[in-house]
């Protein structure tokens, strides 16, 4: 990549007031560094990944409303987690977390267990039980 070809597309780093460093070749063929504000091919990839997560959140919400899963799964998706990540944050085996996705089991969870989930998601037990 030549220095003048370092892309300056509109990226997602603007909000953090920073640019990223890339390596490129100057007019004498020597390597140097140049800041890039963003590059469309990767911004599109990142935006798609975010859209994918939003879709997963919306779907989980719908399933909670249809009583097909518990709010735990919804909050898991909202926090961009998957089962292994949530299980490691909450300190329970994966099969137990998965079991807590079942609405009937979720209803019977102790305050203590609910609190563990609430702490991970940084919400109150009330919010955990009733998603908005």
């Amino acid at each position: 990549m030549k220095k003048e070809e370092v892309p300056q597309d509109k990226g997602l780093l603007d909000s953090a007031h920073t640019k990223e460093l890339t390596y490129a070749v100057d007019e004498n063929g020597e390597y140097t560094t140049a800041l890039s504000s963003g590059w469309d091919p990767k911004t599109i990839a990142l935006n798609n990944a975010i859209k994918e997560i939003e879709e997963r959140v919306a779907k989980a919400k719908e399933r909670v409303q249809n009583n097909e899963t518990s709010p735990i799964e919804y909050y898991m998706e909202l926090h961009k987690m998957d089962l292994p990540i949530l299980s490691s944050y909450v300190g329970l085996w994966q099969w137990r977390v998965k079991r807590h996705f079942k609405p009937n089991i979720f209803k019977k969870l102790s305050q203590k267990t609910l609190q563990r989930y609430a702490d991970v998601f940084e919400i109150s037990i009330e919010e955990l039980k009733h998603i908005s």
């Binding site: 890339t22 390596y23 490129a24 390597y31 990767k42 990839a45 990142l46 994918e52």
Partner: peptide
């Protein structure tokens, strides 16, 4: 989605562009 993830890993912040290949070229120089 899969293809997008490959590109993201390749061009994510930190790679210096081209999946670290440019940093390596700078090293060789």
């Amino acid at each position: 989605h899969y293809l997008g993830q490959i590109v993201r890993m390749q061009e994510e912040i930190g790679t210096g562009g081209g999946g670290f290949r440019y940093i390596y070229a700078a090293f060789l120089q």
